[in-house]
Write a protein that binds this DNA or RNA. Structure first.
Lengths: 225, 225
DNA sequence: TACCAATATGAAAAAACTTTTATATTTAAA
DNA sequence: TTTAAATATAAAAGTTTTTTCATATTGGTA
């Protein structure tokens, strides 16, 4: 986890809420900056790239919805909206224009933390790990390793590209041509060779493959478990 | 987007709600399977790997919370909980045990769709794209390409590993030793060579680098914009 | 400024990866 | 069972990547 604190911008016109939230987030190991209006927030996002923005919808001047609508795309920062209204209409609108989540006031601070953790962890772990497991095999597409029966085998980039594509559509038949197009290769026999190599790595018994099978006359297919 | 429909499991003891939700999700291009209890759901997840589960909390037999608690980890499928209660306590508990989202009944079907889209798009795009932009450079860590002034340059896996690490901690000084440990290399001069190669690719003017700078006596640091 | 240690880098060497080729094996249909 | 087409694969050849080495350059400090 290292020493990095996520930096969160809290935007609310009510100083009481601002400070309360700030305090609470501080206690939960977040770095917090506050803004008292959308305009104020805009000034700040120009200078600092936040990890997340918590934004009240109803504020004098520009509303949180307007702020989200106008800035979400270029900022590309997760936004959690705070809404006072009970009706769903406003919340739906918030999500439609790109907010990542919302919370109805009054809310439990603990719930806010959970939602923040949820969003930040998600983007983080999903960015870092791309690990697929099936059968007795584990494939780490980032580290380019396959793990099977206590041993680890390195895969190369070509193999990664093909595995990644096939894993995305398990059960789909890939013609040699389609596989070849992924790596810019058009000799049929050459595709065979790559498949053979892959089988040696992922199959218990490469001669009668369980996962990476041949469909005679069609191509190859990957079965995940 | 291809031809793939996300497969969603809807679990609710109330047939009316089950069918309503199913109908609505079908209309929104999702493939739906229903289950009338946690036990029923358990049978189904053993056979099918769903993309997402929508789960009522209050059901006879095993509750949605129990189901989530017991299965979330091994399933690793996003879960949206449906809660009837107004209080936050139950919702907080749901998030704590690993649900990805919840929705209070009664809910607008449209809101459910938004939340589902939200979760599925998030996992999908974050799995597929790992593109970093800074200055006039765009780095695609999946495709192993760097784009700069209309031209594209290939990076190799070693370069990707180091860039990825440094991008994760911009401004952090990396000692040669630390960089070397990423790629299992312990000769100082060899690290230099890799840095030189990287600079040729990402720097406008590699002789006076703007992004990948030397900290004499310490190591290297990457500045993002 | 002159010196020394730190850093940079071209080029060679070594290692790894990729493709092709030639031949063997398998499969399905006659 | 025979045959022809499809697939598999070992080994060679070609290519790229990676590391090392030798030398050049740079930056700080006396």
């Amino acid at each position: 986890m290292e020493n990095y604190k996520a930096h969160i911008l809290v935007v609310d016109d009510d100083e009481g809420i601002r400070e309360l939230v700030k305090q609470f987030l501080n206690n939960n190991n977040y770095l917090v900056t506050t803004a008292k209006s959308s305009e104020d927030a805009l000034d700040k996002v120009k200078i600092i790239k936040f990890d997340l923005i918590v934004l009240d919808i109803m504020m004098p001047g520009k509303s949180g919805l307007e702020f989200t609508n106008e800035n979400k795309k270029k900022l590309d920062t997760p936004i959690i909206l705070l809404t006072a209204k009970r009706e769903t209409s406003e919340r739906v609108e918030g999500l439609e224009i790109g907010a990542d989540d919302y919370l109805a006031k009054p809310f439990e601070p603990k719930e806010l933390i959970l939602r923040i953790n949820n969003i930040l962890n998600k983007t983080k772990t999903e960015n870092l790990k791309r690990i697929i497991e099936f059968g007795s095999i584990k494939i780490d597409l980032n580290k380019l390793f396959i793990y099977r029966n206590q041993q680890s085998l390195k895969i190369n980039n070509t193999e990664k590209i093909i595995l990644e594509r096939m894993i995305n559509s398990p059960g789909k038949i890939f013609q040699r041509e389609e596989i070849g197009s992924l790596i810019d290769l058009d000799k049929e026999r050459s595709i065979d060779v790559i498949i053979t190599r892959l089988r040696k790595k992922i199959e218990e018994n490469p001669k009668s493959p369980k996962y990476l099978q041949t469909i005679r006359g069609e191509g190859y297919v990957l079965w995940i478990k």
